[in-house]
Design a protein around this nucleic acid. Structure first.
Lengths: 233, 233
DNA sequence: GCGACTTTGTTCCTGCGTTCACAAGCGGTT
DNA sequence: AACCGCTTGTGAACGCAGGAACAAAGTCGC
């Protein structure tokens, strides 16, 4: 509807990224067109929700036919701002950081690591994913030169906040944090948190209480304040 | 409020895991009590929302005083089902899988990898994080023996669905998937997706449209990337 | 012992996200 | 050229999450 920038909801943005991935796969497979039903099935969402998501980009399908795979893919890529490669810096090259730097999927999805940083002297100079590891003291300079706006933190939790401060001071506007701490960043800087332990703990909860569906909760009626809970031995 | 099991919202469950992490840190630091305001600050949420989250567990604080750090920590751990170590299996020991297996944070947070699996013959027998890598053909047996209910997929995207099928067939009820594909799992199996590219693309979007807060729309003077977006053809 | 302050737990309300259902539009067919 | 089926795009209702304000309760000070 609104052609300019009607402020797309964040939940929709996250799904747009999924649609982009599915569309890229379809394009590589040679598919020319796709319907909302098929695309929604491949993305694991409701067809109506998918259409509503896409409606935020303006009309991009043909009624009675469906969506053009290449056109929709490029449209979403433009809206997400990944139509051209974006420069990212990565701090912390332990196991996780090395895995991220070596992950080829980023390069094909519009992201390029232009700087890898670590504080451990023995890692400096090593090549990870084709790029040399540099000391964190070079961070300001590299960010300024490459105009990187995205920073990824894969350090231990103890130093994550100081790294965040340094990144924001250097001009980074968006941060993806893998360290298990809640970062405090100045206003205007977006921080996204990926906590692997949190994900596992949510799974553990769903696993423990997986039977809330059928049997209508033949519960302990007395108001015992969290009595047993032990149950499953 | 409801003492039995009032179906805690998933968003609350995810935040409970964060509170648990913060509380563990406070407990290690020797703190005995904490207020909702301080805890909310450390977790990056609103104090009122934190109290509402905790209210799902029943009353667990003392008015006028605050919360007992150890008591609240144990209470949340019990609700999440991580009061005792849970058995997990991990499939795919590339860079990311090795990083996960080697991440000490899991063990201290209630998760233990009891089986590491890979299909590449040269990886089988290697020790990663203290455990030997086994062939995926042993997966059924190990899941049955250890009664593991949580599976982590860190394989390439092409084989993730088949690994998912194998895990569910073996009896795994919860799956954490790092492969960039949408998995189809039978009903009753919970799948959580962590897609690193999606996270970065959301950041890219927020970065591109970072000035949507103040409605006054001071359009980016000069260096406007993605200026009009109008030309869709 | 009593009052006042502090902090929790709850309730209301506003806004957002999701889903359902229908109208609008395009291609193919007769 | 008109009809019909198929698919998109949109409007409305429902449910849920988030935030602010208020009442209950317990402790500290006098």
């Amino acid at each position: 509807m609104n052609p300019s920038r009607p402020r797309i909801p964040e939940a929709t943005v996250a799904r747009l990224a999924v649609y982009l991935r599915v569309l890229t796969g379809l394009a590589d497979g040679g598919r020319a067109g796709v319907s909302s039903g098929e695309l929604a099935g491949a993305a694991g969402v409701n067809p109506a929700g998918l259409r509503k998501d896409l409606s935020h980009l303006g009309p991009c399908g043909v009624r009675g036919v469906g969506y053009d795979v290449l056109g929709l893919r490029d449209r979403i890529a433009r809206v997400l701002g990944v139509e051209r490669s974006r420069a990212c810096v990565l701090v912390g090259l332990g196991n996780l950081g090395s895995a991220l730097a070596d992950y080829a999927g980023f390069g094909s999805r519009g992201f390029e690591f232009v700087g890898l940083f670590d504080s451990s002297p023995e890692r400096i100079g090593q090549l990870v994913g084709g790029h040399p590891v540099r000391p964190v003291t070079d961070l300001d300079q590299v960010v300024a030169e490459t105009r990187a706006t995205i920073g990824v933190i894969a350090t231990p939790a103890e130093v994550a906040q100081s790294v965040c401060d340094r990144l924001t001071a250097a001009g980074v506007r968006s941060i993806l944090n893998f360290a298990p701490v809640t970062l405090a960043a100045p206003a205007g800087v977006d921080v996204r948190q990926v906590d692997l332990s949190v994900e596992l703990q949510v799974l553990a909860f769903l696993d423990t209480n997986r039977d809330t569906d059928s049997d209508t909760d033949r519960d302990t009626h007395g108001d015992a304040p969290v009595p047993a809970l032990g149950g499953m031995s």
